[in-house]
Structure formats: structure tokens, C-alpha cells
């Protein structure tokens, strides 16, 4: 099927985008089109019928990826750039791994970082990474700009903190400790495809003792969330097997998966427990 008819407008700069958004605000449903890997299927199936499509795909200023003290990801950074960024190792490895799990190989050619955040699928990998790393999402509107913590940004399935006339321009990931380690893992029915459970972990240790732990869970609730209790149990531990077990059990208890895809709640909790155990055990060697 083809999308229902819409008016099409291409913008070439952030300012033009914000102008177009502000203008469209008066006339009802307008959508921003970036890589289109989630939006175009929804347009084709007529699940969304915007009057106006504002094409931001060509705004060169939003297509960037910069790593120094912190990591800045532009809204139009394509998934393949994160996936192929070999500088993203150690504490950043989980972000790169998360990007490598998004959609399918050809989808990562086009799909964008900002698009993934705005789409806010509860199972999406990059929102989970943004929450786990404590990223700040940068929003712009004609009225100004603001930063929203990723944990506040994702409000529920396909619901975000984006207000009328606002657009994502990028995100800032605060620098993890340089000697940190990280891992990402998910369970899905096929090598490719939506995760039934996803886990993102970032740790840093000093002399074999965990100083800071972040454990994020995806696909098992209305939005990605950190497992605070699991993090607390890991901090101060030496990542010994009893600490790993306790954290895995706490993470499984912390999530609220729905029954979906024929997989019940308990099974999804088991997946979370197994993923947390697996990722932590994998990192234990790097910490000791």
C-alpha cells in the first residue's frame, strides 16, 4: 500500500526544520521524516496519516558523531556509523553493540539515532542505551532548547517528553570512567528481529571492586528503565558469582514485561535474569 496523500516539505537546516514545525503546528498532524525506517512502514500501512511530512533527512549539521570527554550523537547519525565506530570500545562497547542490534543490516544504512529515540519503541536498543548511560536528549523548538535526561524522556510505548514544535537534535552521553567496561545482550526469536528482553550494562572497578554499576533493561516494560536494586547489589562487590546471582534476580524482579509474541511474563523475567547473569559473567574477566 502507499501512504495516504500528504504535503511534502524538505528542509535543509535546523532553523528551517523548526520554522516548518512551528508553521505546521497550526494545521494539525505534521511528522518529521528522517531515515524513515519506522515511519515509512507506518505511513505505507496508513497507521499514521499526517497532512504534512517534513523531510529532515538531508540536514547535514545533524549527521555527526563526536567522542572526546563525552560522546555527542547527532539526531541524523545513522546506525551503521555507531556500529562501525571502532573507537567505541571499553565503556562504550555496549552502545556500539546496541546499535549493531537495531533492525536489520539494510535498515541500519538509513535509520537514525534521533528517529529511534523519537519512535520510542519499548523494545528499541538505542533508547535502552541512552537510559543506561545517563544520556541527555537535546531538544530544540523555535522557542529555544532544553535537555531532558533519557530516563525522563521515555514516557511509555511511543510516548516521549517531546512537546509541540519540538525536535530532537542530538544526545550527549557523559563520559563513563575510562577504565570502565560494558556489554549489551538481547534475546530475540531470530538472529535479527525484535528483542523479547534486552540488557545493557556499564561498570567500572578499582582494584577488583565495583565502584559504579549501571544496569538497563529493555523490551520488558513500557519504556527502558534502569534496575536500581541490581546496580546497588553490584556496587562494592567483586563481581563474584553470588553478587552476579543477586543482581540477576533483582533485575528480573524489577521489570514489568507484558505477555507478547506468545511469550509470558515469567519467561521474559527468566530471559532478563539469564541476560544479566551472562553479561556480568562476561565482564567479570575484564574487571578482575
Amino acid at each position: 500500500m502507499r501512504p495516504a496523500p500528504f504535503a511534502y516539505e524538505r528542509v535543509e537546516s535546523v532553523e528551517e526544520m523548526l520554522e516548518a514545525l512551528a508553521r505546521a503546528d497550526g494545521e494539525g498532524a505534521a511528522v518529521l521524516l528522517a531515515g524513515g525506517q519506522s515511519l515509512i512502514p507506518r505511513l505505507n500501512a496508513r497507521l499514521v496519516r499526517p497532512r504534512r511530512v517534513i523531510d529532515i533527512d538531508g540536514i547535514a549539521a545533524l549527521d555527526h558523531l563526536e567522542l572526546d570527554q563525552e560522546l555527542r550523537v547527532g539526531a541524523l547519525c545513522r546506525h551503521w556509523r555507531l556500529e562501525e565506530a571502532t573507537s567505541l570500545d571499553g565503556p562504550w562497547a555496549a552502545l556500539r553493540e546496541a546499535a549493531a542490534h537495531v533492525g536489520l543490516h539494510p535498515v541500519r544504512t538509513r535509520g537514525t539515532f534521533g528517529g529511534s529515540l523519537a519512535h520510542a519503541d519499548p523494545a528499541a536498543e538505542l533508547p535502552l542505551a541512552a537510559v543506561t548511560y545517563g544520556a541527555e536528549i537535546e531538544l530544540r523548538s523555535r522557542a529555544g532548547q532544553r535537555r531532558v535526561a533519557a530516563e525522563e524522556f521515555f514516557r511509555g510505548p511511543h510516548r516521549t517528553a517531546l512537546g509541540p514544535g519540538e525536535a530532537i537534535v542530538g544526545a550527549r552521553f557523559p563520559s563513563p570512567k575510562p577504565d570502565g567496561v560494558s556489554a549489551f545482550a538481547e534475546v530475540s526469536r531470530r538472529v535479527v528481529g525484535w528483542p523479547l528482553a534486552a540488557v545493557c550494562v556499564v561498570l567500572h572497578a578499582a582494584e577488583g571492586v565495583i565502584q559504579g554499576a549501571r544496569v538497563g533493561l529493555g523490551a520488558v516494560g513500557p519504556a527502558p528503565r534502569r534496575a536500581i536494586e541490581a546496580e546497588r547489589l553490584l556496587e562494592g562487590s567483586a563481581l563474584e558469582s553470588s553478587a552476579i546471582d543477586a543482581a540477576a534476580v533483582a533485575a528480573a524482579r524489577a521489570c514489568a514485561p507484558a505477555v507478547a509474541d506468545g511469550v509470558d511474563e515469567d519467561t521474559r523475567r527468566d530471559m532478563v535474569e539469564a541476560l544479566v547473569r551472562r553479561t556480568l559473567a562476561g565482564l567479570a574477566g575484564a574487571v578482575w
Binding site: Y8, L33, I40, D55, G58, P106, V107, T109, R110
Partner: peptide, 13 residues
């Protein structure tokens, strides 16, 4: 040079 879905892009893009 990279594989992409031709159904997931507007012609204009």
C-alpha cells in the same frame, strides 16, 4: 554503496 530497502524511502529522498 550500502544495502537499503527501496520501499522504506520516499523517491524524493
Amino acid at each position: 554503496g550500502r544495502p537499503a530497502r527501496a520501499c522504506l524511502m520516499l523517491a524524493a529522498q
